[in-house]
Simulated assay, not measured.
Amino acid sequence: MRAAEATKSTRKPTNLSLDSALLKEAKALGINISRAAEAGIAEAVKRHKQEQWLKENASALASSNAYVETNGLPLTRHCQ
C-alpha cells in the first residue's frame, strides 16, 4: 500500500507495543507515530509479497535463466 492510498483508506485504532526510548525520541523529534508505524508496516508487507512472489516463481525464473544461458537472449539478433 502506498502512502497516498493509506491516507484514503479507512483508518482503524490499534494498540502497539513499542520500545519506550524509541517512542520518546520519535515524539521529541515531532514524528507522527501512527504514520511512521503505518509506513514501516507497508514496507514490511511489500517486502514479504516480493519474497513470496520470488519463491512461488523460482522454478520459472530458473528455467528462463537456463534457457538464456544455453541459447542466449531470444531477440539479440534483431539488435545488431
Score class of each variant (00 low, 15 high):
residue 21 A to W: 00
residue 22 L to W: 05
residue 22 L to K: 03
residue 23 L to A: 00
residue 24 K to S: 10
residue 25 E to Y: 11
residue 26 A to P: 01
residue 26 A to H: 13
residue 27 K to T: 03
residue 28 A to D: 08
residue 31 I to T: 01
residue 31 I to G: 01
residue 31 I to D: 01
residue 31 I to W: 02
residue 32 N to K: 00
residue 32 N to L: 01
residue 32 N to G: 08
residue 36 A to W: 02
residue 36 A to D: 02
residue 36 A to L: 08
residue 38 E to Y: 09
residue 38 E to D: 12
residue 38 E to T: 11
residue 38 E to L: 10
residue 38 E to P: 02
residue 39 A to H: 06
residue 40 G to C: 12
residue 40 G to R: 13
residue 40 G to H: 14
residue 41 I to P: 02
residue 41 I to T: 09
residue 43 E to H: 14
residue 43 E to P: 11
residue 44 A to P: 09
residue 45 V to Q: 01
residue 46 K to L: 14
residue 46 K to M: 11
residue 46 K to G: 06
residue 47 R to K: 15
residue 47 R to F: 06
residue 47 R to V: 12
residue 48 H to S: 10
residue 48 H to G: 05
residue 49 K to P: 00
residue 49 K to Q: 00
residue 50 Q to T: 06
residue 50 Q to N: 12
residue 51 E to N: 09
residue 52 Q to C: 10
residue 53 W to K: 10
residue 53 W to I: 14
residue 53 W to S: 04
residue 54 L to C: 02
residue 54 L to E: 08
residue 55 K to R: 09
residue 55 K to I: 14
residue 56 E to T: 01
residue 56 E to D: 04
residue 57 N to I: 09
residue 57 N to R: 02
residue 58 A to S: 03
residue 59 S to G: 15
residue 60 A to C: 10
residue 60 A to Y: 14
residue 61 L to P: 04
residue 61 L to R: 12
residue 62 A to I: 03
residue 62 A to S: 15
residue 63 S to H: 11
residue 63 S to R: 11
residue 64 S to T: 15
residue 65 N to F: 15
residue 65 N to C: 13
residue 65 N to G: 12
